[in-house]
Each structure stands twice: as C-alpha cells, then as structure tokens.
Simulated scan of single mutants.
Amino acid sequence: MQGIDDLCGLVVHEPIVQCVDPRIAPAADVPSCVLQLYFDELAALEAAARLDGPIHRALREPLTAGRFTQQVMAVRALTPHAPSTLARFQGCTYLVEYEGPAEDFNIWLAHYLQHHAPLMSTLPELRELEIYTRIDCSIGLPCARANAMQRNKVVFDDASALADALASPVRESMRRDFHTLPPYQGGTPHFAMGSTYGNLATH
C-alpha cells in the first residue's frame, strides 16, 4: 500500500479456525481476507479510491477479478489506545456485521451506543473496540459495494484471549442485551480473524 497519500492506518485480517464462539454458530461464508484502510478525511479517501487511483493500482487484480467488495464507513473508536495507532501489532479480532436495515436507524444506533457498546467495552483483555456506520461517497473502485448498516470490531492479543472473552459473563450480558435491540432485518455474521496492524502515516 505504499504511495497512497494520507493513508494513516492499514489492518489486514485473515480467518482463523481455532476460535469457537460458544453462543453463535460459525458463519457460513467467511471472507478469505478483510482489509481496513484508515483515512482522517473523506476527501482523501475519495481521492485515493478513484478509478485507476493508488488503491486500484495496489489491488488491481483482486478488484477486477471480483474478489473484493468495498464499503466506506465512519469509525467510532471507543477504546483510548487502539492498536491501529501502533507501529506494528498482531492480534485476534472478532468482526461483526449487522446487515440491516433497522426499522428506525436513529433509535437503533442510539440504543446500541448507549447500552450494547458499554457492555462490549468491559470484555476481559479487550485491546480495541470500534463501531462503524455507513457513509455515502464517491468511489471509483471496480468492485461491488457492500451495504451493511453497521459493523463492529473487538480486538484481543491472541485467539486464547478472544475465546476467554467469548465465554465470559460479560458476553452473556451482551447476548441478553442483543435480544432487546430495536427491530431490524438481516443477519449478523461473526468472523474470528487474525489481524496485522501497521501505521503508515510516516511512509
């Protein structure tokens, strides 16, 4: 990803199989790879993601072969020292997608941020918590757009720490709160991933 102006963080996620969620069945369609590219400004992202722009050039073959979808999302970082600010970090991540739509997204998000997110923030050994909501913008990349209404990420040092968190009393409280979420449609696939973080701001 060298040569992408204003790219301030990159995370590469790859699936792991040694982590089992005791409360949720494994997702049927696990992505082979997830890339997160962080920009501080939307305009910088749009410039980098234009057709034949630097992101397209870096990923040209996988994009044109239909191996990626893309979605631009606002980031709510709810932990004070996220690994994405570190020069290098390897951890274990649980990615969650809420496909949506919600019956009333304002009510949905307010409830989620006020009730569910505080529970997530108390998961044992948590290193990072981010909540993402979708943004409409101009992207020229030749790959399909995903349209999840919300995504989440919780990060731990390793698969053992993630497994402990998934089996913890906090997770049981989260499952109870999950059943009180405002009405919404669609699935909520969960993916356990091994993650490599790098800070590219000075590259």
Rank of each mutant, 00 (worst) to 15 (best):
D5L: 06
R76P: 00
M1A: 04
S121V: 13
R171M: 15
T85D: 14
L86G: 00
L162N: 11
N199S: 08
R171D: 15
A144N: 03
T122H: 15
C33Y: 00
P182L: 14
I131S: 05
A77N: 07
T69D: 09
F68R: 13
T85P: 04
D21A: 15
Y98N: 11
C143M: 01
D158I: 03
R134E: 09
E103P: 12
F105N: 07
A82N: 02
H56T: 01
L45Q: 09
D136S: 08
S168N: 05
E41T: 12
L119A: 06
V155A: 04
L78W: 10
Y197W: 10
E103M: 13
A74P: 05
R57G: 01
D40W: 11
E61I: 02
A25P: 06
G66W: 02
L166D: 09
Y38G: 01
Y112K: 07
A144Q: 08
H111G: 06
F68E: 11
D136H: 15
H111W: 13
Y38I: 07
G186I: 07
A87W: 07
M149W: 11
A65S: 15
P189D: 14
I139D: 07
D164T: 15
D6W: 05
G100V: 12
E172W: 09
G9Y: 08
G186V: 09
A201P: 00
Q185F: 13
S160A: 15
T202C: 14
Q185E: 14
A48P: 00
K153E: 14
E97P: 05
A167W: 09
T79Y: 01
S195G: 08
E125F: 02
T69G: 01
A167T: 12
A146P: 11
L86R: 10
L113N: 14
R60C: 01
L126S: 02
P31F: 13
D21G: 14
Q150D: 02
Q71Y: 07
R67D: 11
P124T: 05
H116W: 13
Q70E: 01
Q150R: 05
S32F: 03
N199V: 04
R171Q: 14
F178S: 12
P62K: 06
A44Y: 00
A146I: 09
F68V: 10
P80L: 14
M1L: 09
P62S: 12
Y98K: 02
Q70K: 05
L59P: 02
G187F: 09
A144P: 00
L42R: 06
C143P: 03
